[in-house]
């Protein structure tokens, strides 16, 4: 994605942000819609479009869990591992998903076919519906048993990829 595309996206919403630094966030979210993650070039383009240094833009991107600076799968499945969900069995959900997708049990990761990424999430605010799962940082659902979670992931694997995750 180049700086002009990002500028075109920012211009209509610029007035909503009192501090121009805040524009870095929507710019990064928009830049991420193209490949699903942010490349060096994307971040340089955001820097050019917002007027901040590439290094600063990268520091913002690295701070947030849902801005990816490395390639991720087509769908990103975040499993809440905070206390409430853990008491309701999120450990088993996590284990089952990692097992099913064949990814590292400590850090999660992306399945071999590149379609699903499993990652940990801290509290998603769905404590009343633990163990909960968030898909693509958009929709949070729960409660899940390990079997239901695996079924959800299988459905996601077949479902069409949303062309624009954030818009």
């Amino acid at each position: 994605m180049d700086a002009d595309q990002i500028r075109a996206h920012l211009d209509p919403i610029r007035h909503e942000f009192a501090d121009p630094r805040s524009l870095v966030m929507p710019a990064l979210k928009f830049a991420q819609t193209e490949k699903g993650h942010l490349t060096r070039e994307d971040m340089a383009a955001v820097a050019e479009a917002t007027g901040y240094s590439p290094s600063f833009v990268e520091s913002v991107a690295s701070f947030y869990d849902r801005l990816y600076t490395r390639p991720v799968g087509n769908r990103v499945v975040s499993v809440c591992i905070t206390l409430s969900c853990m008491l309701r069995g999120s450990d088993e959900v996590w284990e089952a998903l990692c097992e099913h997708e064949g990814v590292d049990h400590h850090h999660g990761g992306t399945s071999a076919d590149g379609r699903i990424t499993i990652q940990e999430a801290q509290c998603l605010g769905y404590c009343d519906r633990g163990a909960c799962i968030q898909v693509d940082a958009e929709e949070t659902q729960g409660p899940f048993t390990p079997e239901e979670a695996v079924k959800l992931v299988e459905e996601l694997r077949e479902a069409p990829t949303p062309a624009e995750l954030w818009r």
């Binding site: 060096r40 340089a44 690295s62 701070f63």
Partner: peptide, 25 residues
């Protein structure tokens, strides 16, 4: 780097215990 030299090169990336000083990429 940001205020005195204003070269914009050094930043703190990531969060918490994983924070580290780094340049762009």
């Amino acid at each position: 780097s940001q205020e005195v030299a204003q070269d914009g090169e050094l930043t703190m990336q990531a969060r918490g215990a994983l924070s580290e000083i780094t340049t762009f990429s």
